[in-house]
């Protein structure tokens, strides 16, 4: 086993208001803060209002990782932005449903705000 708890965040700016971060590895106690740091830097540097977090390569997310996702969501909320958790593995969905944060973290954005963002 290579170094445990490896997390890579690959950031791409899609357009003026949209960014995409491909997260691969484990979002856990030791690594979660890195993701939060990437998001904080992103929001400080770019007027991003839509963040697509690609979770397809997330191998494990523990409760601390869930805390990280909630913190990312809160950061975006604070700037009027929207978080999309994409390609969620089944295990992550189970964690979201068990903690009843599924709707909070994945609910489709209200049409009005979506409309504003698309215009």
């Amino acid at each position: 086993m290579s170094s445990p708890h490896q997390l890579t965040c690959t950031l791409a700016i899609v357009d003026a208001h949209t960014a995409r971060i491909v997260v691969s590895g484990e979002i856990v106690f030791d690594s979660g803060d890195r993701l939060l740091g990437v998001v904080a830097d992103l929001l400080a540097d770019h007027p991003v209002r839509r963040l697509r977090l690609d979770c397809g390569e997330v191998t494990f997310c523990d409760s601390y990782g869930l805390g990280t996702l909630l913190a990312v969501h809160r950061r975006l909320d604070a700037v009027g932005g929207v978080l999309h958790l994409e390609n969620r593995p089944a295990a992550l969905d189970r964690l979201l449903r068990r903690t009843n944060t599924y709707n909070h973290l994945t609910r489709s954005v209200e049409p009005e705000r979506e409309h504003q963002l698309d215009s």
């Binding site: 869930l66 909630l70 068990r98 903690t99 009843n100 944060t101 909070h104």
Partner: peptide, 13 residues
């Protein structure tokens, strides 16, 4: 027994 985690969301179930 299901419910919402405590301490983050304003409303819980």
């Amino acid at each position: 027994a299901h419910g919402t985690l405590i301490g983050v969301l304003p409303e819980i179930e």
